[in-house]
Amino acid sequence: MDLSAINPVLLIASLMVAATPLLLAAVGELVVERAGVLNLGVEGMMIVGAIGGFAVSVESGSPYLGLVAAMAAGAGLSLLFAFLTQFALANQVASGLALTLFGLGLSALMGQGYVGIKPPALGNIHIPVLSDLPVIGPILFGHDPVLYIGIALVAAVWAVLKYSRIGLVLRAVGENHEAAHALGYNVIRVRVLAIMFGGACAGLGGAYISLIRVPQWTEGMTAGIGWIALALVVFASWKPWRVLLGAYLFGGINVLQLNLQAAGIAIPVEYLAMSPYIITILVLVIMSADKSRAPASLGRIFHASQ
């Protein structure tokens, strides 16, 4: 066992990368759930985003175009969910599960010709002086742009929900859709837009895995991150900054346990592999012991009768 092989600076830098797909998917789902919709299809939207983004950036040669395509693919797939639940009034849990299964199958089909190809790389940003600082440089100023977009998105979602009119209406729709309707707000429109936002975020998170973190295409490569994102939103009590904390905690322990495995620590690999899940859930359960609760209309079908 050789713990000195673990470099703390690299560890922190790589935990941020490991956490970003989870963060993106979770912050999108947070907005969806605050609007009162439970979309269990995050995993499906992520994987379709992953292959959609991968395919477009390989064909066009532009990783940025790929990211945009991934968001469009995620949002497009979420529209299917929006149609089922908001217009056909289907059960949200069943529709979400179906979306995940559909997304996994669709992505496998789309990805047939892309196995083993390397996508065009998205370089890390480089700011003169700042990025060259020891310790701080690689941690804070040496990442790819999407990672910063993820953090900015958390801040933006927090500020919009707390301070803006749109955020207030969104929370109101999630809290009591009948009252919101009685006051003249278009519940369906708010929810469809929220679902599309969640889809775009999940798609971006998926493309982050296939274009930046791994970068290659393999079937089922999101490996359950979408499900972790769903759990994270609940354990984070539907609060954006707690989602960030939970995602970094999860990413951090994941990277750490991989390092420990590589260092040959005398704990069975299975325990190490399950540790990120257990520790993240424990910490967030303890934090969510305050009086915050789920949006009151979460998962309920809205039908504007009379």
């Binding site: 009119r165 207030l168 809290e175 009591n176 009252a179 009685a182 009151a296």
Partner: peptide
């Protein structure tokens, strides 16, 4: 003024007023 109040329990008074 509705019979069954069209209010949002989790929001504060000012937010409820603003929504109307």
């Amino acid at each position: 003024v509705f019979q069954h109040f069209s209010l949002f329990d989790a929001l504060n008074v000012a937010e409820n007023v603003a929504l109307g």
